[in-house]
Amino acid sequence: MSRNIYVKHRPAVIGAGLTLFRRRMLETPKELAWIAAKQALDEAGLTLKDIDCVVIGSAPDTFDGVHMKGEYLADGGAGGVGKPTMRVFVGGATGVMVPIAAWWHVASGHCKTVLAVAEEKMSDADIPHPQAVFRYIWDPVTEVPLQPNLIWIFAMEMHRYMYKCGVKKEDIALVSVKNKRNALDHPAAQVAANITVDDVLKSEVLVWPVQLLDISPVSDGAAAFVVASEDVARRQTDTPVWIDGVGWALDTTSWTNRDLAFPPEYANVAAQMAYRMAGITNPRKEIDVAEVYDPFDYKELHHMEGLGLAKKCEAPKLTKEGVTQRMVTYQ
């Protein structure tokens, strides 16, 4: 792969929007997408007419219960009417694949302005519970007959991580406590709360060691932003946010063959790609703030290690020391 860290059309984010995250939003998926899209456009000072291309992200079609969900969301929902519209999909990571796809739409010079929208309405898949969708994510021949549940994988992974790194549930619960408290200051957050480690440890056990407060809830919501090339970005705003590097990777489908404990290789490969593109050599020093995927609390620790923000097994320690707290400056 080329190591050229300069792209001709440097992409920047110039506007963003977010809906409330709630279970059972009354809006249709299209409406959710549009609420976020409109906010992003307003912030960018643009209208749909100014948008060259649209990128849509949404994960399993079964959540919203719509086949070809990209087509469904395109119309009006994400403002795709009559525009080049591209949907990307990489499971739970779809939300971050959307800016990546928007990045190459702009960096290639193909589009100058991209409206990027991600939407998911999990609560629509409500019979008996949206978790039911995860019955259909497995290998149809070797795994589906075992009727696995999604939380199983994570429980095994969490267990393995705890064993290999000698981490206690108490240490992991700190992530849940921290993130739910951070969310108190976020107007769109669904499960903000002031809880203690004890609350987490006493919550309902789902699949040991995963308990109710270790896990993120069923949620509906949409997020959107406008990505523009440098010339448009400079014209529209004094504070563009540049996309310096992107990276992504998919690990094997045979999850049983993966090393479950150690720094998730997929996150590592993706991070190295993005760092190389951005010219980052020491992420711990050069990165000020990170938003990492934490569908389960231990996953934040796991992913921090994958991203090179902590050494192997070091993330629980950093968390305990308060390094990942919002108010503490990391040196």
Partner: peptide, 18 residues
Amino acid sequence: EFAPEPIGGTLKPVFTTP
């Protein structure tokens, strides 16, 4: 998630466009 292996893409940048 079923895309990477058969095409040699495991642990490489693979993505799906529906």
